[in-house]
Amino acid sequence: MLEILQYGFMQNAITAAILASIACGIIGVYVVVKKIVFISGGISHASFGGIGVGYYLGINPLYGLIPFSLLSAVVMGLVSKRAKVAEDTLIGILWSLGMAIGIVFIYLTPGYAPDLLSYLFGNILTVPRSDIYLMLALDVVIIVLVYAFYKEFMALCFDEEFAKVAGINIERLYLLLLCLIALTIVLLIKVVGIILIIALLTMPATLSRHYTNDLRKMMYLAIFFGAVFSVAGLFLSYIFDIPSGATIILVMSTVYILHFVYDGVKPKKAG
């Protein structure tokens, strides 16, 4: 069983899973406590447009994805806060718009779009070394920015109105948070794909909330859960020869559901 660790692709896959868990643990906690799951789903689906543009231009689709996902984050953030239409309606529209752009560009790209399915459903076993370096760089960016704005993000998520009066530019900070979500999506896309990202972003963080009342500890725990579940899912997918992204999500959901059921049986803890 352990001999599979000698394969280069498996080492890359495990490294990628752990790098993805770091971003997803930190940012997932914000997504859960600030209750912005829907807009995060919107950003991740809309970024499909960037994949399409990447194919069309003949570059690594990840390089099309980064600017496009950041753009989607900023547009969704601005439009949802400023327009006088219900926020969820607008997010739903932009969600589909981004995907439609992606589909059209892929159609216009001459020839066959290789790996298209791996962007939609993830395929961690095909992550090349160059993507690992990109993931590492994105992790560093996310960690530095969260360290720098830790207090400010906490105030934003806990009490926006107070933070505003305390002199914080709430809109800019919220857009920064959405951009960090966009970068996390870039990191996660190879692991589980656009369609399944939202589960990876929310489940480790939600689970960690059951064990601590401290934001920082929640992040550490979420990283730990994410890493354990994704590596476990990776092995299971190898053993049973089934898609890795979906297996990771199945492992996570199973643990979460069991936890939920167990929690429902035992007396509820306050907080």
Binding site: V33, F158, D159, E161, F162, D214, L215
Partner: peptide, 24 residues
């Protein structure tokens, strides 16, 4: 502010809430 405006399930303790006042 009206305390209903804040997110009371948020993982934060009394000490962190009060320190937040020094943000400005």
């Amino acid at each position: 502010p009206q305390y209903i405006s804040s997110n009371l399930e948020f993982p934060i303790n009394v000490w962190e809430v009060v320190l937040m006042g020094r943000l400005s």
